[in-house]
Nucleic acid binder design. Structure first.
Length: 209
DNA sequence: ACCGCGATGCCCT
DNA sequence: GGGCATCGCGGTA
């Protein structure tokens, strides 16, 4: 399957966030290959977006990678415990990103089970099987994504995204999660997910197509 | 099912 | 020193 080229990422996050649904995130690590279908994303639109780390042109060491070119990872540490994985979009100097919020496991599932719960997959409860990757912090745990992967080139051969199978699905657009203090930005419908997918972190009842 | 809360450390003012 | 693009637990129903 084809790896997404750098040009794929050189667009507004609102476009890339939708186009990433159904694509396959891959991490090759410790001789293992972990891969999963992207089912939920959020667009962070940079300078104009109060919820974005780069809002107003804020340029600190943490967000520096967002100011570089498209197709690199932006991994940050949150709540003292978790990592979140983003894909940097747009050209150098325009700091946008897409947060990957949930994925559906496809391969390397035993490895994910160990990484998340220190147990073999067959010992997991049903809620734990869904809980492997149905949230931004959880999928980073399953995929062994941490600070060391900040700034990784997604056009390389370690952490990358591939075309998925041809597939029809409906896309739901709704409000982003966990950004209560961002004024009008908290109400923008910049979260996207595959309708009816089990691995979506938070379903939104009153949604828009 | 839903709700409330505490964990825990880095980043930035 | 305050806040954070989260999660899992333990309570109540």
């Amino acid at each position: 399957m084809g790896k997404l080229p750098r040009e794929f990422y050189n667009k507004d996050s609102l476009i890339v966030a939708k186009e990433l649904l159904g694509k396959v995130l891959v991490h090759e690590v410790n001789g293992q290959k972990i891969f999963a279908k992207i089912v939920e994303t959020e667009a962070y639109m940079g300078v104009e977006d109060k919820a974005a780390h780069s809002y107003g042109g804020r340029r600190t060491p943490r967000v520096e990678i967002m100011y570089g070119g498209p197709g690199f990872s932006y991994v940050y540490f949150i709540y003292g415990m978790y990592y979140c994985f983003n894909v940097v979009t747009r050209e150098e100097g325009t700091p946008q990103a897409v947060l990957i919020r949930a994925v559906e496991p496809m391969g390397g599932i035993e490895f994910m089970a160990q990484n998340r719960f220190k147990k073999p997959h067959h010992e997991l409860k049903k809620s734990q099987i869904i809980g492997l990757t149905n949230g931004p912090g959880k999928l980073c745990g399953a995929f062994l994504i941490d600070k060391d992967l900040n700034g990784e080139d997604l056009c390389g051969s370690k952490l990358y995204i591939e075309e998925g199978q041809e597939e029809e699905f409906a896309i739901v657009s709704c409000k982003r999660v966990g950004i209560p203090n961002t004024g009008e930005a908290k109400d923008y419908l910049w979260r996207f997910y595959i309708k009816d997918n089990k691995y979506v972190s938070v379903k939104d009842e009153k949604n828009v197509h």
